[in-house]
Each structure stands twice: as C-alpha cells, then as structure tokens.
C-alpha cells in the first residue's frame, strides 16, 4: 500500500497512515543547517508547514524558532521518521532532541 502522509489541524501534527505521529512543541537539535547562525540550532517546532516522502523517509518542514538566538522561520527538510515496509505501514519516528541535519529537497506529498 502507499504511505499516506499529511499535516492537519493548522499544522499541529503529522499523520502517517491515519495515525498521529509527530506533534508540534518538540525541540529539535539542528546541525549543519542554514536556519540561523547558531552552530547547533535549538529549534522549537511550532507548526508543520509541508510534508514529503522520500522512501523510506518521511520528511517535514516546520515553522518555529531557535530558542537560543530567537531566529524565526521555516526549516529545510527534516526526516521525522521512516516507513520501512509500505505493506505494513509501520512508522518509526526519530527522536527530536537528537541531532538532525536538514536537507534542501525532498519529494513533496500532496499539498495540505
């Protein structure tokens, strides 16, 4: 089956196969990023802006703020988890507070 990914409720969370998997309000540590000038951005996710699938990764861009320097904006693409076997649709989420490296591109899911 295909993996169904979207953001809902004004970008409050990401649904993967009709299961709420990623919420806003987590802090994400970003390395090798262009979000702000901090070497390691301490990024508060306030809203999901876009979601995408780049098998097996589920990716998202978040609106939010680095709570170290205060820069506001939208991140590049972050991998929020993986669906390794599309047949069973099982989602394996990443740990937000571990270190993540944003990417410039992914395959867009349908617009929300």
């Amino acid at each position: 089956m295909t993996t169904d990914v979207h953001q809902l409720d004004d970008g409050a969370w990401i649904s993967v196969n009709d299961s709420r998997e990623i919420n806003v309000s987590d802090l994400w540590l970003l390395a090798r990023h262009e979000f702000c000038d901090c070497e390691m951005a301490d990024f508060l996710a306030e809203g999901v802006v876009e979601v995408g699938v780049d098998y097996p990764d589920i990716d998202a861009r978040f609106a939010g703020r680095c709570i170290q320097c205060g820069t506001e904006g939208v991140t590049d693409w972050l991998t929020v988890g993986r669906v390794i076997d599309p047949e069973d649709g099982q989602f394996y989420g990443v740990v937000p507070e571990s270190v993540h490296v944003p990417r410039k591109r992914t395959r867009l899911a349908r617009p929300e």
Partner: peptide, 25 residues
Amino acid sequence: PEDEHDAWFERFKWWGLYHQRSGQE
C-alpha cells in the same frame, strides 16, 4: 475505519466535534 480517521475527524468539526490531542484518542 482506521484509514479514514483523519478524513472523518476533519468532517466531524462541521458538527462541532474536535478530536482531542494525542494521548486522548
């Protein structure tokens, strides 16, 4: 149906019902 949760919860809003947050399914 589990694969229709998101669609129905979005529609239920029209009748004033808003599914509570994660952990309160």
